[in-house]
Design a protein around this nucleic acid. Structure first.
Length: 345
RNA sequence: GCCGAGGUAGCUCAGUUGGCAGAGCACAGCCCUGAAAAGGCUGGUGUCGACAGUUCGAUUCUGUCCCUCGGCA
């Protein structure tokens, strides 16, 4: 492959005054990236990844980052933003994403957000309550308290300051109990109150939401194949390298799919076959959770992909939706449509 | 052929001093506002190998048979 400039895509100028945005979601291993690359080429735009693990540098195989070849064809953003031990969260993601979207709009291009991290996509489409992010000093303190007094005691405390959240969050859900208490200690306000005020009501963009879906069993078969491919590409070596670089298994990044299971094998907790078994299982469970999340997300145009469907066939249907959206943008028809549907609850 | 162990949920197995059975995994449904590939919740009727006997009642006890695994011939 000879060197090529990054943007050898045809340049197409769009009216971006309505802040148009195309979002492609779907469960892991369904084939989002290759569809995204095709769409991006045709629109002369870039891919903005909405993936909570691809933001980590050095975690390439397990997160299924696009290859260098693919990145030469189409620029991918929001990848490799931090090291695996640096804190990262939805808020950070949203800031980066909005900056990239703004930039593309200024270039009269339509950004293409692609990913499987539901919360990240939601934060882009509907905003995030403006309160303070995790205060890790306070969080560690709360974790310590949970150790000493028991989670039940903290849950009780939450019940006293924020009954609504306590009712909504299960007493066993450490992460959410601590976050709710943290919000109260930081702001003096109950999480339920500030969240209700925000209510994901922001609508910064005019978006087309596309969702890829597939027969469950067929998807599970693809997941198995994906796991084997990752192993062949060197997932074990990649994990070994990350561990030897000092990235602890307790890091959220290292607890993500692939690394968690391979680290267990490398540290002798179980054999290789068991690690592979677990990785397949956990990935299936993850795909299922993603489907649960996206299913209730409003306004998704679902594209059901057949088990062995060709890319061009998928593209025909995808581009059908995209062209319709572009027409609406250009003619202004979107204005009435999106306003009515976006404000409807 | 003989001896031993065993046949219970899709899988691995537990259990019932006789009152129509339960864990893990699988699988399914769900929750989520700065850890989100994280974290959490919920869901178990299955000829208890087959047939016969004892019993008010058998998956449990008895007998016969079938099957699986191991050992010995």
């Amino acid at each position: 492959m000879t060197e090529h400039p990054i943007h050898d895509n045809p340049v197409r100028a769009f009216d971006t005054s309505k802040r148009p945005l195309i979002v492609l979601v779907g469960p892991t291993a369904i084939g989002k990236s290759r569809v995204a690359i095709e769409v991006a080429k045709r629109l002369g735009t870039e891919v903005l990844t909405a993936d909570s693990t691809q933001v980590y540098r050095g975690m390439d195989i397990g997160t299924d980052k696009p290859s260098l070849q693919e990145r030469r064809e189409v620029a991918h953003r929001l990848i490799d933003l931090v090291n695996p031990d640096e804190p990262f969260n939805v808020g950070e993601y949203r800031r980066h994403a909005v900056a990239e979207i703004d930039r593309l709009h200024q270039e009269h291009r339509i950004p293409l957000v692609v990913g499987g991290t539901g919360l990240y996509v939601r934060a882009v489409l509907r905003g995030l309550w403006p309160g303070p992010p995790v205060d890790w000093t306070l969080r560690r303190q709360l974790e310590q308290e949970a150790q000493e007094r028991g989670l039940a005691a903290l849950y009780q405390e939450l019940g006293k300051v924020d009954l609504q959240t306590a009712r909504r969050v299960h007493p066993n859900d450490l992460v959410k109990v601590l976050r709710a208490l943290e919000i109260f200690r930081q702001t003096g306000l109950p999480a339920s109150h500030v969240h209700k005020q925000h209510g994901f009501q922001e609508r910064p963009f005019t978006a087309l939401l596309l969702g890829l879906t597939m027969d469950r069993n067929a998807l599970y078969r693809r997941i198995e194949e994906r796991v084997h491919v990752e192993i062949e590409k060197g997932l074990v070596e990649e994990t070994r390298r990350l561990l030897s670089q000092g990235y602890a298994r307790s890091l959220t990044s290292m607890k993500s799919l692939g690394y968690r299971q391979m680290a267990g094998f490398l540290e002798g907790e179980y054999d290789f076959d068991e690690a592979v078994r677990r990785l397949k299982r956990d990935t299936r469970h993850f795909a299922k959770r993603q489907m649960t999340w996206f299913r209730k997300e409003p306004q998704i145009e679902w594209i059901t992909v057949l088990p062995d469907e060709s890319l061009s066939s998928i593209m025909t249907r995808t581009m059908g939706q995209v062209s319709q959206f572009l027409n609406q943008i250009q003619t202004g028809a979107i204005e009435t449509k999106s306003c009515s549907s976006l404000t409807a609850k």
